[in-house]
Every structure is written in C-alpha cells, then in structure tokens.
C-alpha cells in the first residue's frame, strides 16, 4: 500500500501532497521537509529507492518536478515507479505536455486524476484509456453545467 505521494519542485516547493494514512499535520510537515531535503541532495544516477524509517521511498524526477512515494516494506518498488509514470502520462495526456505550471494552476484537477488512479493507496485502474474516460465524463458534466450557466446568464433559459 502506498502511504503517501508528494510532488515537489527542484526548488523544494511542494506542489501536491496526498496522504493515504492519517498523520497529524505537524508530522506531515516534518516528513515533507525531511524527504524534500534528502531527495534533492541525491545525485541523478543514484538508485530511485531508499530505506526511510520503516518504509521505502520511491522517487523519480520528471523535468523540474520530483514525484516521491512512500510504500510499505513488502511493496514492489519497480511497479511503484510505473505508478508514478502512469500518473505522469495521465497528466500529460490531460493537459497536453504537462508542465509544473499546469499542476500549480490546476491543482484540483491533479487531485481528481490521482483519485481515479489510486484509492486508499492502492491502484484502482491501470488502464490509461479508462482513467481518461472517467475524467472526461467528469468534465462533460462540468461543461454541461457551464453551458447551462451561460445560457441562463444571457436570458435564454
């Protein structure tokens, strides 16, 4: 089970955090601080896995963003790397070559997409097509509402 996922920039700014275990806010901040420092200090060719407290950290850098997951001792590290990759693919497909700014300005979307991929720290849907379909049907609902709103505003409804 994944315990949490953090996205942060090369400057150490946290861009997204998702916790699958209940930690007090103070602990969350402490964990984040420690991990960001640890990972930023690592060199590019190093191993993507590290032992940390009683869990394992799996991380990977995509452009200016670090994706970092904590998993349990028995979990599969390589496949966790691919969960990260699948998430990046989804963001990329959704935003069209995603960049850090997309995630800053549309952080809520980034959360919605993540919720379709993982629930309770376990992978829910591994098919890219199916996740995008689910997100598309959410957007469709919103667009209908938006059209409805505009029509109402200009007095057509």
């Amino acid at each position: 089970m994944m315990l949490f996922m953090l996205l942060f920039s090369r400057q150490g700014k946290l861009r997204l955090q998702k916790w699958y275990m209940a930690y007090p806010d103070k602990v969350k901040k402490k964990i984040t601080r420690e991990l960001v420092t640890t990972i930023l200090a690592r060199k590019p060719k190093m191993c993507s896995f590290l032992e940390w407290k009683d869990c394992k950290i799996v991380y990977k850098r995509y452009a200016s963003l670090y994706f970092c997951c904590a998993i349990e001792q028995n979990d599969n590290e390589l496949l966790t790397l691919e969960i990260i990759h699948r998430y990046v693919e989804l963001l990329d497909k959704y935003f069209g070559s995603v960049c850090e700014l997309d995630i800053i300005f549309n952080f809520e979307k980034a959360y919605f997409i993540l919720d379709e991929l993982l629930i309770g720290g376990e992978i829910q849907e591994t098919s890219k097509k199916n996740v995008l379909k689910a997100i598309a049907s959410q957007d469709l609902l919103q667009e209908d509402e938006a059209v409805e709103g505009t029509l109402r505003d200009i007095g057509l409804l």
């Binding site: 935003f95 957007d139 667009e143």
Partner: peptide, 14 residues
C-alpha cells in the same frame, strides 16, 4: 499552458 476543459475559475488563477 494548455486550456483546461471544464469551467476554470478566473479569480483563483489570478
């Protein structure tokens, strides 16, 4: 930055 589907929130972006 690509245009985002759904309704954006201008105030938030600002």
């Amino acid at each position: 930055m690509a245009p985002v589907r759904g309704d954006g929130m201008r105030g938030l972006a600002v």
